[in-house]
Structure formats: structure tokens, C-alpha cells
Design a binder for these strands. Structure first.
Length: 557
RNA sequence: GCGCCUGUAGCUCAGCCGGAUAGAGCAACGGACUUCUAAUCCGUGGGCCGGAGGUUCGAAUCCUCCCAGGCGCGCCA
């Protein structure tokens, strides 16, 4: 509220002086209490444009602010300090009105409304359905889902999408591996191929299929072996193996509180001839061409290092070709903006995909690719590699088993996504009791407990009384709660859900301090009511933060 | 060789579209429960922000180079 009003005065000042290229105005919370409730370094930034000394500008701004009818009712003091800071001290009325506003917002406190909301397609996880999700996938799931919630709460329309890589040699190999395990379980010794999938979970898939189908596929395997990928029996195992893995994956993600609106199959693109269709369009527009018996796309038109192959000389389409058909489909569905979350091991693929989107719609910036760094797994200090094929991995389920969904989600999203994450599963198990998620959840549970113990005549409310919000603990809490909306906006715009984690920890700390020093129940009635109002708002904001992170907000612990 | 990410307290990391004395958690140490939940609070110690230059009134933040680690650079997916 204060920021907006000050900004209006500043805008009028700039217009009056006809300064061109003035910096954006912003208020910050100073670390030092002596520097007031809020401060701005605006005049220092303005100095160059205004060709004047920062302190002189600050003095002028101070005079204007104090003379402004819209601001004066809320200001205790405005001071010029240091090299040109302007520090603001709020009066009692400002705190009271601030709390009234936060309280009136109800459950929507902090929600951002946009002048121009975007229809966003957010694609993430998108792994081959040929093995369980490992912890690295869990990180993208946690990050992507929190980003989904954050973008939606910050005023955008978001569709979450999972692109199923259910086509190609990896799926063939998976089908053969399942078939081999199926045969073995019926006493026929058929070896899993050298390049096949060795993990224990393949036995489980085979066992499920045996439970449904009995031994009716055994004879065909005995007769044909695993050599003909187009045989009816191998097509069957590929399809059924895929179906079981996908179901398992959906179930795991649901348990991890990650929901997708659209599950999009790569195979369907091929079967419906849309990959070929996309390529034909590109050929007819002259942005694809034939050379060395292959078909190439002019990705260099949009800055890629070299053109890329769409159809190999053996006439099979590349993964890239399918991806183009897929993105063409997404664009046709009318999204303003596409976001893909990819692992760092795919970052080399970004320029060609953006170039492809450029060639499809003329606007490469419609596609935003977020690169998430990897998770290094350790066990008792020793590196553990993750290979789906060899069955060596720490699965997401294992992590959830060890520390629970709440701690896992909080842990996986609390660091910036472009930071490589070290995870020691043994250490995580040991340290789960110290996970900061409990600190935040405890704040919520404590407020819930206050609400349970309330005397009947105590209702939340604020009145302008000198006794109300008289302590720094209450005022700090109000300022922190007041920031929530701008934290949401910034976290969403910067694709940074870990900022919500940081804010939630700060808010919890602020509340715990308040709790220690300011009693609600038993205080003088007007003080109790005003503190109860703070508790209600704090509870909503903590719950919202946890919800944005996909973590539960417990009523008791 | 080229490209992307990273280097901040003993450990794990925030801060990075420039601002006041660089923060948090964990670990260490010392205090606080007859009162709404001590999964809490209060306090102490701990730093060449990888290194060197540059830009500026001001640099952890921007630019250049160097060092170190991770990940890529297919007619693989």
C-alpha cells in the first residue's frame, strides 16, 4: 500500500521534471531497525539521470512526500540517510490499515491479479516410461509442480503436461526385457538382452502380466525368442509393460502430489502421421531440405550452430522431428507461452528446439526452456550413480519412504533449480527430524492451537488504539505478511519457487518470535482481538506457502 | 577445443536486472518451560563472497581473463 502511494508521488515528480530514463522505483525492508520500516535507494539511482547529488534529490523527495495529502496520514517520519537513502517510519494508522486490508483479502491474501494473464503450457518430468522415477525426476516433479501452483496463484492460466516418450528403441528394449522376465518366471530361461533393463522392478511388471495373462504368451516366446520386435508377442509385451509402468508412474506422482492435466503420447503423433505432416509442411515452406539422403531443418536461421536432421537416411524420423510435431500441436492449442523444464543433460538441445519454434510460428521466445541442474546422489559419502537401465538408482519412492512426502518436496525445491543438489540418502534419513519443513509447519500448528483455545467472546478485529500493534514483534510480523504478494509475484516471474521456501522460513521465524513475546489469549481485549487478526492472516499465509510447495499444513503436530 | 550451470561461514545453501555493517539452517557453546504446543525462543563464536584486473560515488552482484567442479557438444533419446 505504502509502496504504491509513494510510487505515485515519485511518478509525478519525474513527469514534472521531465527526466528521461528514470530507474524503476522500489521499497525495501532495511536490515537495520534504525533505518526505519522501509527504505529506498531510488535517489541514488536517479542521480545520473537527474544530474544532481543523491542527497539533494533525497531531500527534495522527502519534502514532497511529507507535503502529500495521500501519504501524510501514514508517515511517522521520513529521513534522509547515508549516501542518499530515504528511510520511512510508519505510524500507527498505517499498521492498522495494513492489517485491515490483509484480513479483508481472506483466503486470497497474496494472490496476484494480472492485467494480461497468460495461457501457459508447462511441460515437465516427461521421462521414458520404462522404469521407476528416481530422485532426479523427483526434483523436476517437485520444482515443476510448485512452479505450476505459483504461476496459477500469480494470475496465469496454466496447463501442466507430461510428454510420454513411449516410442523408439528404448521402449522396444524394455518390452524385450519384460518378456524375458516373464518367460523366466515360467521356468523358461530366456536371457534379458545385454542392452536391456536389469532392475528388479522389471520382475514386478512381468509378474503383474503373468497374473493377468497366465502362461498364454510362453509358447510364442519359446518359438520366436526376442529377436523380432514386430512380432505379435513382443508388441504385446512392449504395450503391456508400458501400460504398467505408466500406471505406476502416475500413481507415484499422485502420491507426491503432482498432477498433470494432459498426458501426451509420442507414439500417437507417429501413428496419426503428424510427424510426417509437420515435416511436409516445413519442406513445402522451404525451411527443410533434402541432403545426403536425409531431411534437414534450417535451425541455423534462428541461431543454431548447424542444421539438424529430421529424417535419417534410413528413413526413420529423429526424436527431434517428433518433438517438432509435438510443439506444433501445443502452439495450435492456443497457448501464449510454452515452458519446458529439462534436465541439465539436455541443455545442448535448447537452441535447436527454440529455432524449431521460431520456424513454426516466427516467435522463438514463445518457448521458454528452464534447465534444472542434476541431483548428485551419495550414500554415506560415496557417490551413487543413477542408471535406469542397470537398475542402479535411488528411487523417488525410496526417498519418500525415508523422509516422507512433505520433507522430500520441501527439500527438493528449497534450493535454486540451477544449483546442483547433493543428496545423501543416509544423511537425509538421519536429518529428517531437523528438516526446516517442520519449523514452518509448526508455526501453522501453533496458530491452529491458539484458535482452538479461544474464549467465545474473542473475535479478530483491529481498532485504532495506541495499545494495538505497539510492539516491534507485531509490527515486524505485519511488515512480513504485507510482503507476501510481492514475494509471490517475484517468485513466479523469476520461476523461483525456492523463494517461497525462504519467505516461509522467514515468516515462521517472525511468527515464532511474536508467539513468544505477545500473548493472544488473556491480553487486554482490544489487543487480543488485534493479535488474533494477525494470527489468522499468518495462518492463511503460511498455509498458502505450504500449499504452493505441495506440503501439508497440519492443525497439530 | 566450444557452450551452459556452479564456486559465499566447519557443512548445506540464500542473496546475483549494483546500495547502508554479506544472511539463514545445521553443527559448536551459553541461557529460557506454573501461562495460547520447547518441533520454540534469546544470546555467543565463526567470512580474502575461488583468484586477478576493469566499469562506478558504490561490486558477492555487471564486464574481461584465469583456476576448480558439474553437464553437454550424434543421421541417440
Amino acid at each position: 500500500m505504502l509502496a504504491e502511494r509513494v510510487e505515485r508521488v515519485v511518478a509525478e515528480w519525474i513527469a514534472e521534471k521531465e527526466w528521461e530514463g528514470a530507474p524503476a522505483f522500489g521499497l525495501e525492508r532495511p536490515a537495520e531497525a534504525a533505518h526505519g520500516d522501509y527504505a529506498t535507494n531510488f535517489c541514488m539511482q536517479l542521480a545520473r539521470v537527474a544530474r544532481a547529488a543523491p542527497r539533494a534529490l533525497a531531500e527534495e523527495l522527502r519534502t514532497r512526500l511529507l507535503a502529500d495529502e495521500r501519504l501524510r496520514p501514514y508517515l511517522e517520519a521520513v529521513e534522509v540517510a547515508g549516501p542518499g537513502f530515504v528511510n520511512f517510519r510508519l505510524n500507527h494508522t498505517a499498521f492498522v490499515e495494513s492489517v485491515e486490508g490483509l484480513l479483508a483479502a481472506g483466503e486470497d491474501v497474496g494472490r496476484v491479479t494480472r492485467a494480461h494473464p497468460l495461457r501457459i503450457n508447462l511441460e515437465y518430468v516427461s521421462v521414458n516410461p520404462n522404469g521407476p522415477l528416481h530422485v532426479g525426476h523427483g526434483r523436476y516433479a517437485a520444482y515443476g509442480n510448485s512452479l505450476h501452483r505459483l504461476l496459477a496463484f500469480s494470475g496465469h492460466q496454466v496447463t501442466a503436461e507430461f510428454y510420454i516418450n513411449d516410442f523408439g528403441r528404448q521402449m522396444e528394449m524394455f518390452g524385450r526385457s519384460v518378456a524375458a522376465r516373464y518367460a523366466q518366471s515360467l521356468g523358461f530361461d530366456l536371457a534379458v538382452p545385454d542392452e536391456g533393463y536389469q532392475g528388479d522392478y522389471v520382475h514386478d511388471v512381468a509378474a503383474s502380466i503373468r497374473a493377468e495373462e497366465g502362461d498364454r504368451w510362453l509358447a510364442a516366446l519359446q518359438a520366436n525368442g526376442l529377436d523380432d520386435p514386430e512380432s505379435e508377442v513382443l508388441l504385446f509385451f512392449r504395450r503391456e509393460g508400458y501400460r504398467h509402468m505408466l500406471e505406476q508412474m502416475k500413481e507415484e506422482l499422485r502420491r507426491f502430489r503432482v498432477e498433470f492435466d494432459v498426458w501426451f503420447s509420442e507414439t500417437v503423433l507417429h501413428e496419426e502421421g503428424r510427424v510426417q505432416g509437420a515435416i511436409n509442411d516445413l519442406l513445402s515452406r522451404g525451411v527443410a531440405y533434402v541432403q545426403d539422403d536425409a531431411i534437414w531443418l534450417r535451425t541455423t536461421d534462428y541461431g543454431d550452430d548447424k542444421d539438424r536432421v529430421l529424417i535419417r537416411s534410413n528413413e526413420r524420423p529423429t526424436y527431434f522431428a517428433a518433438d517438432i510435431a509435438y510443439h506444433e500441436d501445443k502452439l495450435a492449442r492456443g497457448y501464449d507461452h510454452l515452458i519446458n523444464i529439462w534436465g541439465a543433460d539436455h541443455h545442448g538441445y535448447v537452441p535447436r528446439m527454440r529455432a524449431a519454434v521460431g520456424l513454426l510460428c516466427g516467435e522463438p521466445d514463445r518457448l521458454e526452456v528452464i534447465i534444472g541442474q542434476l541431483v548428485n546422489l551419495l550414500e554415506d559419502g560415496e557417490a551413487r550413480q543413477m542408471s535406469t537401465r542397470r537398475g542402479e538408482m535411488v528411487t523417488l519412492s525410496e526417498l519418500i519412504e525415508a523422509i516422507g512426502v512433505d520433507a522430500a518436496r520441501f527439500f527438493l525445491v528449497m534450493r535454486s533449480h540451477d544449483q546442483t543438489l547433493d543428496l545423501d540418502i543416509g544423511l537425509a534419513r538421519k536429518q529428517s527430524q531437523e528438516n526446516p519443513v517442520y519449523y514452518v509447519q509448526y508455526a501453522h500448528a501453533r496458530i491452529a492451537s491458539i484458535l482452538r483455545n479461544l474464549p467465545e467472546d474473542l473475535v479478530p478485529g483491529v481498532v485504532s488504539d495506541p495499545e494495538v500493534f505497539a510492539t516491534s514483534y507485531e509490527r515486524d510480523l505485519i511488515k512480513t505478511l504485507d510482503e507476501f504478494g510481492s514475494v509471490v509475484r517475484e517468485a513466479a516471474d523469476r520461476r523461483a519457487p525456492h523463494r517461497i521456501v525462504g519467505y516461509a522460513q522467514e515468516l515462521a521465524a517472525c511468527f515464532h518470535t511474536f508467539y513468544k513475546h505477545c500473548r493472544v489469549i488473556g491480553s487486554e481485549p482490544r489487543v487480543a482481538s488485534s493479535r488474533l487478526a494477525l494470527c489468522l492472516i499468518a495462518k492463511r499465509v503460511v498455509a498458502r506457502c505450504l500449499d504452493l510447495l505441495g506440503v501439508e499444513a497440519p492443525e497439530s503436530m
